[in-house]
């Protein structure tokens, strides 16, 4: 799954980079996080609620911890633009993660009538 691959990459960066300014548990503010998420344009590729799409991977449910997220966006090796500290501070990243954690999980495809019985050729 794309999300698992993304998590693996990010965790690798975390081990290599090692930023330790983050609290063990997320202490961010979800409301502020949503405001930052929209203001700095995360929503453009990842969706308003971090659901992900062809342009950006899913950030919810189960968002990365702030430290891992920071490591990835500070040193993004792929097509995602880098977000240096001048653009998004560590505190703002904590807020973003708090927001992502607050997003309710999506329904399962099997609980959606339109998607439930969908199969190739249907």
């Amino acid at each position: 799954m794309k999300t698992k691959l993304f998590s693996s990459i990010v965790m690798s960066f975390s081990l290599l980079g090692g930023i330790s300014a983050f609290a063990q548990d997320s202490t961010g503010d979800a409301d502020r996080g949503r405001e930052t998420f929209m203001r700095v344009g995360c929503y453009q590729c990842h969706g308003d609620d971090g659901k992900g799409n062809d342009a950006g991977t899913a950030l919810t449910p189960d968002p990365l911890p702030p430290e891992a997220l920071a490591n990835f966006i500070r040193f993004s090796p792929g097509r995602m633009p880098m977000y240096p500290e001048e653009v998004v501070s560590d505190a703002e990243i904590e807020d973003i993660v708090a927001y992502l954690e607050s997003v309710p999980p999506p329904p399962h495809a099997d609980d959606i009538a339109i998607l439930k019985d969908l199969k190739p050729g249907s």
Partner: peptide
Amino acid sequence: YEESRLLAARGWNSSPVS
């Protein structure tokens, strides 16, 4: 196909519409 089917559910209830 199944992976896409499951992913389509993400943001199903979002507004703006996914």
